[in-house]
């Protein structure tokens, strides 16, 4: 396994947390992992991204030039990172905020209205977890159980009360993919 994932969006969308949870999960699975954030002023309201590598081998460059998976939580992220994806790679688009369609034909595209689903669940802030749940189910990079454990780790004792709502969002995202697999498999091919 040598998965290279770019998470991108606005500052405040929980981009860093998505990457962190994936990294923890990968570590718990016994893989080599690295997490590289963008840092500086852009973390406050501008565009934010993080690069996560999960690999059987020691991680070389933590910078991802060719991604196996990209998560675009806003339009600038889609515009910037769609071209980073290797042929056959996966792209997750938050359609609540992105009207534009992806242009690539050689990748798998998952369109998820994450903000709307999060709103339905009662908390806009968990849109990131909806997408992450979908990502884990669609890619099988890590076990779903590992992600649940990683979530507890990342939230820590001070945010323990938020575990259950985040879990709910992860599961919802996962279900979307399961349903999609049944009904819309052809759409992806």
């Amino acid at each position: 396994m040598d998965e290279k994932i770019i998470f991108a969006g606005f500052g405040g969308q929980g981009i860093m947390s998505m990457g962190l949870i994936m990294s923890y999960a990968g570590m718990m699975d016994g893989k080599n992992v690295s997490w590289l954030p963008s840092y500086g002023p852009e973390m406050r309201g501008g565009t934010a991204n993080c690069h996560v590598t999960i690999s059987d081998e020691p991680v070389g460059s933590p910078i991802i030039n060719e991604a196996t998976v990209v998560v675009a939580m806003n339009r600038p992220s889609l515009e910037k990172y769609e071209k980073y994806i290797v042929p056959g790679g996966k792209l997750f688009i938050n359609t609540s905020l992105i009207e534009k369609k992806a242009e690539r034909k050689d990748i798998e595209i998952y369109e998820i209205a994450a903000n709307d689903i999060a709103n339905e669940l009662g908390n806009l802030k968990i849109a990131n977890m909806v997408i992450l749940g979908a990502l884990v189910r669609a890619t099988n990079i890590t076990k779903f159980e590992s992600v649940l454990k990683a979530l507890v780790e990342v939230l820590g004792p001070s945010k323990e009360h938020l575990v259950s709502i985040n879990e709910k969002a992860l599961k919802k995202g996962s279900e979307l993919i399961e349903n999609l697999n049944d009904k819309q498999k052809s759409h992806l091919e």
């Binding site: 990294s23 570590m27 992992v33 590289l36 910078i63």
Partner: peptide, 10 residues
């Protein structure tokens, strides 16, 4: 460098 300072690894 800043990358090493900011990145996470086990």
């Amino acid at each position: 460098d800043g990358m090493l300072g900011q990145m996470m690894e086990p």
